[in-house]
Design a protein around this nucleic acid. Structure first.
Lengths: 148, 148
DNA sequence: CTCCAGTGGTCAAGTTGGTTGACCATATGG
DNA sequence: CCATATGGTCAACCAACTTGACCACTGGAG
């Protein structure tokens, strides 16, 4: 029983790892080889609108300094622009550039591609059940990256 | 459709992240707060028997130098011992100490605990299907950690 | 209005987990 | 016996993140 649970846990980790690798490969194939998974999560928050540096930090579970560095990379690579927040002179609102939007679209495609691979390897009912279970278990906490 | 696939992918990543965090918490609760997930995967390989430094490197998908550092930590913390390989004077076989075995047992317990939580939150049939899908999708490649 | 605790952001330095590259010792097949 | 491959180490470097100090602005209490 414990044994069974352990292998289940290992399977989830393995699946997640292969998912990450697959998406990364798909991104490279689409011409975005300068983005990491963490960037993707930042994109997700930014495209949701009205994101600040601190929002990113909280969303990714990292310090605001680390978030600042991460955003700086995205700005430097042309994915994101910072502009002043009309409501708060301290804050700077983040927004995706066209390139940034193209990148998020590519990420969604790449992820969908991997998931389609799963669908193809499972009976229809099995895939549906997998999705249902994942959704049921997924009350989204902050999306922790970088488990060192 | 793509949208659905994307959320599925995100759910897997979220689940894996919470699994890692949960296991880490369980390990701390059991008195093993000086081990990281990567150590756990190394333990798994070592307890399988006849493991060398290079085996660890391959199993974790890191360089042999990184594996050496990792093993060095485990030795320093009393989880692993190195002794000469009777078959090959260059190699050093790795073996778990009692403490190392206790640690792997704790890890399995902690992981099982998290998975039991999943079981409790799903209908019996849903959990069974989840497990079946994970197993079907899980032809274990090397267990990549550290996706930065 | 003034003060002040709280928040958004930055700068600087340090830690950590990994990399690459050079190297030695032993193994192994011609 | 030699050539090449493999296990391991040492040393230097790098990237991602942390901690700590700090400044600028906010917003409520007096």
């Amino acid at each position: 029983m414990d044994e069974e649970n352990w292998t289940t846990a290992a399977a989830v980790l393995g699946l997640a790892g292969r998912l990450i690798d697959g998406v990364q490969a798909g991104m490279s194939a689409r011409g975005f080889s300068d983005v990491r998974p963490a960037h993707g999560f930042a994109f997700a928050r930014i495209s949701a609108g009205a994101a600040t540096n601190a929002d990113i930090a909280e969303h990714l579970g990292i310090t605001k300094q680390a978030a600042s560095q991460l955003v700086e990379q995205l700005v430097g690579r042309g994915y994101v622009v910072r502009h002043p927040d009309p409501r708060d002179a301290r804050a700077r609102l983040l927004e995706l550039t066209d390139r940034g939007r193209a990148c998020t679209a590519a990420a969604e495609e790449a992820a969908a591609e991997v998931v389609e691979g799963w669908r193809a390897r499972l009976p229809a009912e099995g895939f549906r059940a997998l999705r249902a279970a994942l959704v049921a278990l997924g009350p989204p906490g902050p999306l922790r990256i970088s488990w060192r």
